[in-house]
């Protein structure tokens, strides 16, 4: 599992949706040990953050922390996952979009929506961070960022302010 082939990663990604939690857990753990090669499984790993099994979720999170930016073909699915009801899924979808920088510009509207009051605080904060990483291509989110910059949540306010600078406002 040290230098997993694309076929192996694909197979492990498929196993993340197996009915048996032990199979899903083992697949997530092996992806976690796959290093940057696991980037090819970025979207299935994000979805696995919503797994009912704690072991699957923890391994998926650990894998996502280390895999860097996702492949471009994962972006559309990640943008869709930004609105996921499970905050951990949304958080990691947003994080991977932020890592993609300007390439995630198509996700600006979805990200800006997560700045709305009532959003899970960690999700809203990460959305502000991701918009800052997208930079000038996220200018359409300036209004939502200005509002977030006056939030009573000091971290959200700070990240929104930083994002405003990054988008050129």
């Amino acid at each position: 599992m040290t230098d997993s082939s694309p076929a192996e990663i694909h197979d492990l990604a498929r196993q993340l949706t197996a009915a048996d939690p032990a199979v899903r857990r083992a697949a997530a753990e092996r992806l976690c040990r796959s290093g940057p090669a696991a980037a090819a499984a970025a979207l299935p790993l994000v979805r696995a953050c919503g797994d009912a099994d704690e072991g699957v979720r923890e391994q998926a999170v650990a894998a996502l922390e280390e895999l860097g930016a996702p492949p471009s073909e994962a972006l559309a699915g990640l943008i869709e996952a930004v609105a996921a009801a499970d905050p951990l899924v949304a958080y990691w979808a947003i994080t991977l979009l932020g890592r993609s920088g300007e390439a995630a510009a198509a996700g600006v509207t979805a990200l800006a929506r997560q700045l709305a009051p009532g959003t899970d605080p960690a999700v809203a904060q990460r959305a502000a961070w991701a918009l800052g990483r997208i930079g000038s291509a996220a200018r359409a989110a300036a209004g939502a960022l200005r509002e977030a910059a006056s939030s009573s949540d000091p971290r959200l306010a700070r990240l929104a302010q930083e994002a405003l600078s990054a988008v050129g406002e």
């Binding site: 953050c49 979720r57 999170v61 905050p87 951990l88 605080p121 960690a122």
Partner: peptide, 9 residues
Amino acid sequence: GPREGRTSS
């Protein structure tokens, strides 16, 4: 230490 992190993880 206590469990720490901004998300449920």
